[in-house]
Amino acid sequence: MHYLDIVKSIGIPLIWSDEPIASKGFYLPNAKMISPVGALFVQSDLSESEIENVVLHELGHKIDGDILTRLSAPQLHIINESKANRFMIHKKASEWINGFEGNYPNSLDVVVFLKWAHLPLRLYAIAEDEIKDLVTPSVGSFL
């Protein structure tokens, strides 16, 4: 699903900032004066791949994240960022893997995926986990 389709299905407003902002984008869950589901702000001078990655990351905060404040423990902020990154990588990895149409190469190279997705190498471990989960059929558990 294209990131704009996800934005539309949630009904979250996407607001473009022509002014530089502290990060490339951010999700404001308490922007109730704009929308009951908050608002997603994105810097307008980004490349299309940066916009997609930023929007998917911020959607991860909306979909999988917790509402935090500046007083929340730093560990909770780290966990929230990880959840948002995992959501973004999952969506990008699904698109990448679907492009193989079931004809996967002998080895799916995580670095090749990260370059394709325009993502930094620091996200290698999350990307590796998501790719493995997407291509490995679920076999259940004996526990």
Score class of each variant (00 low, 15 high):
Asp66Gln: 13
Ser44Pro: 07
Phe113Val: 01
His61Trp: 04
Asn103Phe: 10
Trp116Ile: 05
Ala84Glu: 03
Asn98Glu: 15
Pro74Glu: 14
Gly65Cys: 00
Val111Ala: 13
Glu81Gln: 13
Pro36Asp: 08
Glu95Lys: 15
Pro105Gly: 08
Met88Gly: 07
Ser107Pro: 00
Glu50Asn: 12
Asp109Phe: 03
Leu119Glu: 02
Ser49Gln: 13
Ser44Ile: 04
Leu68Ile: 03
Val110Trp: 02
Leu114Thr: 13
Ala39Pro: 04
Asn80Met: 01
Asn85Gly: 01
Pro29Ile: 00
Phe87Ser: 03
Asp109Leu: 06
Glu50Cys: 04
Ser49Trp: 02
His57Ser: 02
Ile63Phe: 08
Val110Gly: 03
Leu71Asn: 11
Leu46Thr: 02
Asn106Ile: 00
Trp96Thr: 03
Leu46Ile: 04
Tyr104Trp: 14
Gln75Thr: 09
Arg86Gly: 01
Val37Cys: 06
Glu52Met: 08
Ser107Lys: 14
Asn30Met: 06
Tyr104Val: 02
Val112Met: 06
Gly65Glu: 08
Asn106Leu: 14
Val37Tyr: 11
Asp64Gly: 04
Lys83Met: 09
Trp116Asn: 14
Trp116Phe: 14
Ser82Gln: 09
His61Glu: 01
Glu50Arg: 12
Asp64Tyr: 05
His90Asn: 15
Lys91Phe: 05
Ala93Thr: 11
Asn80Leu: 07
Asn106Lys: 13
Ile78Cys: 05
His90Lys: 15
Phe41Trp: 14
Glu95Trp: 09
Lys92Val: 09
Trp96His: 15
Ser47His: 08
Val110His: 01
Leu119Phe: 04
His57Cys: 05
Phe87Pro: 05
Phe113His: 10
Pro105Ser: 12
Trp116Ala: 14
His90Met: 10
His77Ala: 12
Asn106Trp: 11
Glu52His: 00
Met88Trp: 03
Leu108Lys: 03
Glu48Thr: 13
